[in-house]
Design a protein around this nucleic acid. Structure first.
Lengths: 408, 408
DNA sequence: ATATTTTGTTAGGCAGCCTTATTATATACG
DNA sequence: CGTATATAATAAGGCTGCCTAACAAAATAT
């Protein structure tokens, strides 16, 4: 089933920024802006109008639509200052929900999220790497159905994050190096058929970056996802950049050493063979002839073990090198470290920071001033996947499921 | 004069994509689209309507505006097929012109360009590196005024390309390593004052990329500018990406070797110290104890000199390494080589291509299929600078200068 | 009580697009 | 030569979505 030669259904391209060519598109744009602002915090009509630079009547009209669709709730006005009290508007957290899936090498996760992106119900299991496409997909579907059965509100869409590379046109996973079961799987088509919902597929690293957009005002940043591999979610103008073939951000396969060790990917000296979590474990293992897991090595490093510290330091140094190059190429506003490796960011950041401070193009000390944030959110990939689905609803790409009038 | 502590005039941010929030903005967007299409080739109203996906009446109306402003000319209908002949519309090449300036290390160039970006008049001289900010600016201004005096149509705006880094907010050149005369110069403010025209400042590498946009349909590509330094113009969705501080694309200071030679920029193993034109000259010089210029070395390489060939091959290999990393990070659709170094692209490309083919993330052979084009346009930087000014006119950011009615 | 301030709505208008119908200009062909 | 057909461009009327100006509502200040 995973090997269908061709997809039959039309496949949704996600995050498609349609051209703005007519007045109706303006409405779509403004509607999405309103919802994005309201995700941050409740606002009154006046406040929204001012923030967006639109007139009060225009905004009132727009809000009217959203209220009618029950996407927003209007709370009772609360005292603020003198003058009529503003009526706080907020997103209706019970209007609908979305399903967010994370299909990673060792994690198979299905979660329900409310319109604010908050988790309602999460089911985590193993993806079953090495047991074949059929089995992997079966687990994913089973988890999805189980979670869906618990939904207490209509489900609008599904977002799924998977390792790249991905063919977005066809909704097909191509050839993730550490997850051969998925090779050439038409994931979108299958899920759409089996779940009967619109499905949005995204890179895992793009998904986490998408998720992080919610908690940062940064316009241009790079989210470095540290796990066995290393991915980069590239955000430009608050848009995820995917590349021509949906392939951008393979930071793990950037070469740090032109004559380095060959990597299965074809390149040499790939970053992820030096700074990926597996690489850290292997390095420590080679030095000590043991086979500890990452967290154990981190614990040793914290308790002063110099070899364990070295293992992390070398990874940090390589990441620092990568960071310098990213800065000189992208000039981002922010770097974010996330994923399993980021749990031990305190061991990586000192050498990363040192490299960045001393080597990034030094004018005005942009290297020194570049903030590095650590994303500690528990399940960032699944949330990111859900965000894609949410975004589609916000942009009005998906017809909203019906709701029972009166169920505030 | 070049050291004004603060700029007084409001400085124009160039290429600012204003938000689309109201119906009028839709017009602006569609107007710019029409003009971009007509730059490629003359089209009829029907053809334009179909290409843009707009209705014929809407397009007719828009064209009416543009004709009224004399920005377009309507030629006599010519036989094409049966049915009424379409009236070809084209951009009026005599409606206005723009000034394009290139202030590079060894090139100081002022040119007039018509609305199609075609050069009308170009004056090339030396920038006077090492003679101080005052002298450099004097030369630029003098060349500008001399060229402007030859203008036979109203001048709408000025575009100027300079080496980075640049502070775009302030219109200030910061600290180009090879051109200390320019450090901290408020170029935009001075030019606006001295020329009395709106001025748009851009990186040299971004400018050439902007220029190349005119001759390629590619959405996402990277223009690699090979001169003493190496710059990258990053184009995403047919927009130049500048980075948070207008600093993106410093490809020359990406490190190819974490333990390589120190570079004045603070990093080690910088690409431009291996593959820049100066680096090639130096490498050949070290090997042969001579001091030839690049073109002489290239001539020797063509005539079979193995040392000269090696000097280019090593640069090509480093560029290939960079290309692989760019592909794995950006997944571009196209790479373009331009600038003085690109004149000898035939000596660089074989090893570059080899590296790219064997090492880029191999799925579907995207490395192998990635086209590499060589930009052979004679003065690409000046044209690129002019393009920025043209774009501003097309987007309607600049009030068009008056014209004498009747001067078709 | 009355003035003031702030929020939100109503009414009327403009811009820009669409659809449908009409006019203009050409070829094809009996 | 006249009519059918095809294509281009315009005209008329309508819808959407924004704006401004005026107004109604709801609170505080005095």
């Amino acid at each position: 089933m995973a090997m269908n030669p061709k997809p039959a259904l039309p496949v949704r391209k996600s995050e498609g920024s349609k051209p703005v060519q007519r007045p109706q598109d303006v409405r779509r744009v403004n509607r999405a802006s309103v919802l994005e602002l309201l995700r941050e915090r409740p606002c009154s009509r006046s406040e929204l109008a001012q923030m967006l630079g639109l007139s009060k009547p225009a905004l009132g009209d727009l809000i009217g639509d959203l209220l009618e669709q029950n996407l927003l709730l209007e709370d009772t006005p609360t005292p603020v200052q003198r003058g009529r009290y503003p009526a706080p508007l907020r997103i209706n957290p019970r209007r609908f929900c979305v399903l967010g899936l994370d299909l990673s090498v060792d994690n198979c996760e299905a979660g329900l999220y409310n319109p604010l992106g908050e988790p309602l119900e999460i089911l985590q299991t193993f993806s079953g790497v090495g047991q074949g496409a059929h089995e992997v997909y079966r687990r994913l579907l089973r988890a999805s159905r189980e979670v869906l059965s618990k939904a207490s509100m209509p489900v609008a869409a599904v977002g799924v994050a998977a390792p790249g590379p991905i063919n977005f046109e066809q909704g097909q996973i191509l050839a993730p190096p550490h997850f051969p079961d998925l090779h050439n799987m038409y994931l979108v088509e299958q899920l759409q058929r089996d779940l009967g919902l619109p499905v949005y597929l995204e890179h895992d690293s793009a998904a986490v970056a998408r998720q992080y957009l919610g908690s940062t005002p940064a316009e241009n940043f790079i989210y470095i996802l540290l796990h066995r591999g290393i991915g980069a979610g590239i955000v430009i103008g608050r848009q995820i950049y995917r590349g021509q073939h949906g392939f951008a951000g393979e930071l793990g396969h950037v070469s740090i050493d032109i004559d380095g060790e060959p990597c299965p990917c074809g390149n040499r000296g790939c970053l992820e063979n030096i700074a990926g979590t597996t690489a850290i474990e292997l390095r420590y293992g080679r030095l000590t002839r043991t086979g500890l897991e990452l967290s154990a090595i981190a614990a040793l490093a914290h308790s002063g073990d110099p070899v364990a510290q070295l293992a992390f330091e070398q990874a940090g140094r390589a990441l620092g090198w990568a960071a310098v190059n990213l800065v000189n190429l992208f000039d981002p506003e922010l770097l974010v470290l996330g994923g399993p490796g980021a749990a031990h960011a305190d061991l990586l950041i000192p050498s990363l920071r040192h490299h960045l401070n001393t080597r990034a193009y030094p004018y005005l000390g942009w290297g020194e001033h570049l903030p590095i944030e650590v994303d500690t959110l528990p399940k960032p990939v699944g949330i990111g996947a859900a965000e894609y689905a949410l975004g589609a609803v916000y942009r009005g790409e998906i017809p909203l499921p019906l709701w029972e009038r009166g169920s505030a």
